[in-house]
Design a protein around this nucleic acid. Structure first.
Lengths: 252, 252
DNA sequence: TCGCCGCTTTGATCCAGATCATCTGAGCGG
DNA sequence: CCGCTCAGATGATCTGGATCAAAGCGGCGA
């Protein structure tokens, strides 16, 4: 069953209520900063509320959109993990990104009004869906929101550029583990322990490494005391050395 | 002599005149579309004029900005070619992009207010410099300009993501030649003949290939009748096959 | 005109990581 | 409790492109 998932007809209307977590959804999404920048102006916040729709939950494996789908909304991850990817002519999957809690999907689709990639839920996923045309209009009256959108877009350029460097398997893997850890930490989870929702194959396709190489590097990192790994549960044991390894990729 | 080159004190004030090419600079830059979208509203165009400064010419080799420089302006190339790059810890240069006539530099710096890379002029370069804060403010009153900025940012995400795939040397090289040809063609130059202003080493650093590999692939492309190459002058002989090769990278 | 210098080409060798082929082991349905 | 399935691990081999090492070959200054 294939349907456009970021399109309106999957959305439940989002009540504008001031109490309960309907009002705090925003604290977990990337536009919280923008709201704050506007000094929590009540009417602006209400307008932002008007154009958001909570969609999901989608279970693992559900496609959220497909390459070529018309673009009309971006989405922030409210829970779960999303993978975006392309399938090349020879059937290989190129993973473009993993999106964790609070991260924004779809900014690469603005360019020509169609999604340039596919997205699937890796586990149970809920989203905040924002009509992009409405958001752009609102950004016209909320400079903070406009600035936040510019920043998010610019950030994605940098993320993509970082993946484009020619780095060794070790450097890529170290950067990947650190990046996940930091992003979880930023949302209030443990900075050293996390459970991945993607397979070794997904990680390989993201890092441009064979799954076997991912497996071997992870083993070596364990042998060298950098990580403790049990299936998809990772624990960082030697942050310093991991940062050292990842330095060429992450650059700070 | 190292100075911040996208900073105001290098700029000559740009007279707001309606005649001559002072007024037509915009037709060659990426914001022409935005102007047009606003229906050439006179006062808006004048405002855009107010915040633009023509800077340069800079001669080949001149640094335009450096990694870590504070960001306050984006720039459109008015003439010449700009290379952006990073130097990694081991001294290797990673070229992030080449910017031709009309293309916009600096969008990756919005994210955290500093340039994440260096830029140099590859030949004689002139720029249109736009104060970004002023442009963002103006975009608030010119929805077409805002939309154009969103599109440009989104486009850069896609460009960077395309480079991040794992492609063969042939695919990368074919995509590079085609991309340059298209961009020149878009600005009204020959779609099949052009002169590059970057060295084989630069191309290699951009494509993540050794300069020797670039040289070998170019030779083979010539032997196979895809290209005619003389030093830095390229002519496309077999567009079809080149497109075929580049397909996995360019995807259309 | 000569000779130097930096870019480019070409050839020989090497190696990180891909690929191919098994093997292990957890989860799960019956 | 058994056997199936599929993710992951491990070993053996292969290879595309890097690296190392020499030439060519303009262009330019003296």
């Amino acid at each position: 069953m294939s349907r456009p998932f970021l399109s309106p007809f999957h959305a439940k209307p989002s009540p504008i209520t001031d109490d309960g977590d309907e009002f705090t959804f925003c604290s977990s999404c990337a536009f919280a900063g923008a709201c704050r920048a506007e000094g929590y102006d009540k009417s602006a916040l209400e307008e932002l509320h008007c154009l958001v729709e909570h969609v999901g939950p989608y279970h693992a494996g559900t496609p959220l959109f497909r390459e070529g789908d018309p673009f009309n909304a971006i989405a922030a991850v409210r829970s779960g993990t999303v993978k975006t990817f392309r399938i090349d002519a020879s059937g290989r999957e190129q993973v473009l990104g993993f999106f964790l809690l609070g991260e924004v999907i779809g900014l690469d689709a603005i360019h020509n009004g169609r999604f340039p990639c596919n997205a699937v839920a890796l586990d149970t996923v809920s989203l905040c869906r924002f009509s992009f045309p409405m958001m752009a209009t609102l950004a016209t009256r909320m400079p903070g929101l406009q600035a936040q959108l510019f920043r998010l877009l610019s950030q994605d350029i940098n993320k993509a550029a970082a993946m484009a460097g020619d780095f060794s398997a070790d450097e890529r893997m170290a950067a990947f583990v650190l990046s996940i850890a930091r992003r979880f930490a930023y949302r209030g989870f443990s900075p050293t322990r996390f459970v991945l929702s993607m397979s070794r194959t997904d990680i390989g396709n993201y890092l441009r490494l064979a799954a076997e190489t991912v497996s071997r590097v992870v083993r070596r990192f364990q042998d060298e005391g950098l990580l403790r790994v049990d299936r998809r549960e990772f624990e960082i044991l030697d942050l310093r050395r991991l940062q050292q390894l990842a330095l060429p990729v992450l650059r700070e």
